[in-house]
């Protein structure tokens, strides 16, 4: 039976495999096309784009558009390039991701291992925040930030993103810790470890996969956010807003090559996070779904 199956598998294998790989290749090319267009055009001088074929490789290769996009392009009224805004984004994303992940992990720990009356309701309310559209909270958030004196500042943006991130990060960690054996926590209690020590020494060391998931999710969401950045960024707007200002400028020549370079620069960090941590991403998403 098994042998027969293998034979059939081998025979159908050749034809179907060529077919399957063919289709996959076509789709891969299709999805890579935008990146290809952006990359090639960001490496051309402007006349080559306006005068020629979008799909063609550059005749003269130049990094000038990248340099301009990074350090000298006109963003709004200042010719600063994207550099300062890139820094703004980093200064916003890193603490926001770190804090929301930390709080999510603690929430998950408390909700699963120190359950109290009403913990399910609290968790349900936290989940609610995953479904609230950004636009609804703009005005109340503006008033809160104003009262806290954090309007138009990076700490203000960090606060907004932490508040919004806690829902998802709690969901991730709660589900991960729900299948973590409670007997281990009890053993640690008898051994004399306190609330934070159990968390730090017992749970966190085995939380790698879910932390990767959480960090990727938070990083992409916060980095790519435009609405909060545009609304509450003030003088410290993040990369996304700057890119918009670069690309949407309505006067002068449209420097497509600079725009392309800028767009790639804006997408680069998330791309990097996926490449570095992506391997753990699926593993973490699947963790706990099957008893391993």
């Amino acid at each position: 039976m098994a042998v027969a199956d293998q034979d059939t598998a081998v025979r159908t294998g050749l034809v179907t495999r060529v077919f399957i790989y063919g289709i996959l290749l076509v789709f891969a090319a299709f999805y890579l096309l935008p990146l290809f267009v952006m990359l090639t055009n960001s490496l051309k001088p402007l006349p080559e784009i306006t005068g020629g074929n979008m799909m063609a490789l550059p005749d003269t290769w130049t990094f000038e558009p990248w340099r301009q996009a990074w350090s000298s392009a006109q963003i709004g009224v200042e010719p600063t390039g994207l550099k300062p805004y890139f820094m703004n984004s980093i200064l916003m994303v890193v603490p926001a991701v770190a804090i929301s992940t930390m709080i999510g992990a603690l929430n998950g720990y408390v909700l699963t291992k120190w359950s109290f009356r009403g913990d399910k309701i609290i968790f349900g309310l936290l989940l609610f925040s995953c479904f609230i559209p950004f636009q609804i909270v703009l005005i109340p958030m503006a008033s809160v930030l104003g009262k806290l004196g954090m309007a138009g500042s990076i700490p203000g943006l960090v606060l907004v993103h932490v508040v919004y991130g806690i829902g998802f990060s709690t969901l991730y960690y709660r589900n991960y810790y729900a299948v973590f054996p409670t007997e281990l926590v009890r053993a640690a209690m008898i051994d004399g470890a306190g609330f934070f020590r159990i968390f730090w020494r017992i749970l966190l060391p085995v939380s790698g996969p879910i932390t990767v998931v959480c960090v990727i999710w938070q990083f992409t969401n916060i980095w790519n956010d435009f609405l909060f950045g545009a609304s509450f960024g003030g003088q410290t707007q993040p990369m996304t807003v700057a890119l918009n200002n670069l690309v949407q400028s309505s006067t002068g020549v449209k420097e497509y090559n600079v725009h392309f370079a800028g767009a790639i620069l804006a997408a680069l960090p998330t791309l990097l996070v996926y490449i570095v941590a992506g391997r753990y991403f699926v593993r973490g998403l699947m963790a706990g779904s099957v008893k391993g």
Binding site: P181, E183, L184, R186, A187, A188, M189, I190, D191, G192, A193, R201, I202, P205, V206
Partner: peptide, 19 residues
């Protein structure tokens, strides 16, 4: 508190810290 009772417990699942 359990840690102050000077007891030790062996659990059904052993509850060894995996890390």
């Amino acid at each position: 508190h359990p840690s102050k009772r000077n007891i030790a417990m062996v659990f059904q699942s052993y509850a060894l810290y995996p890390n």
